[in-house]
Amino acid sequence: MFEARLNNATTLKKILDAIKDLLNEGTFDCSDSGIQLQAMDNSHVSLVSLTLRSDGFDKFRCDRNLSMGMNLGSMAKILKCANNDDTVTIKAQDNADTVTFMFESQNQEKVSDYEMKLMNLDQEHLGIPETDYSCVVRMPAMEFARICRDLAQFSESVVICCTKEGVKFSASGDVGSANVKLAQTFNVDKEEEAIVIEMQEPVVLTFACRYLNAFTKATPLSNQVQLSMSADVPLVVEYRIAELGHIRYYLAPKIED
């Protein structure tokens, strides 16, 4: 028996919004420690890794490890049927071929349940080692989304240059060139507005705007985003989900011609 409850459907809606543009389907691996999803996007250029800890749920029960392959488009249709303040419960029997989403209104007067067929997805899991990165940048998630959106107008690629003074995002194309420099902040009143750079070695890396923009669909989940970069290895874009877990996106740097 698997049962996971969140007192507010908004978080689950935001999580789905953060992955459904990159992935058509995904396997939710459930265990007593929580729910994990790892999947490459359709073109195998980026990797999505979602971790939701069991202690972040308002109720969590998982008697046996369970892998539930879901069509994310179908899941999105179902979650549209939930009000933001509904309690959402995800339920499945052991070895079941369906999953049930139950939505309960705050006053308990409306209870709906939607059963969805599970899919058998033959997805390979990749081992992602814990790595020390040359540069780790924490910045407001809204600011990162804005920069990715703005620079995508000028080029398919953005160059991220990180030194201990700051981080620079650049794009150049037929129209001209664009540069956005952010300095590390000191003594900001609100932690969520801070720009913090931890640098061992400066890095200059080029990434595809299209994927960075897809990652910023997670912006509503978190005030801050963390970018971890080293030469010649995938960038990690991490959004923490308060008290529940995180979503990480991995994207390989583009190779200069």
Binding site: L126, Y250, L251, D257
Partner: peptide, 14 residues
């Protein structure tokens, strides 16, 4: 995408 490596090539299968 040109100049873009497959993300799977950076990690070993589990």
């Amino acid at each position: 995408t040109s100049g873009q490596k497959n993300i799977g090539s950076f990690f070993a299968p589990k």
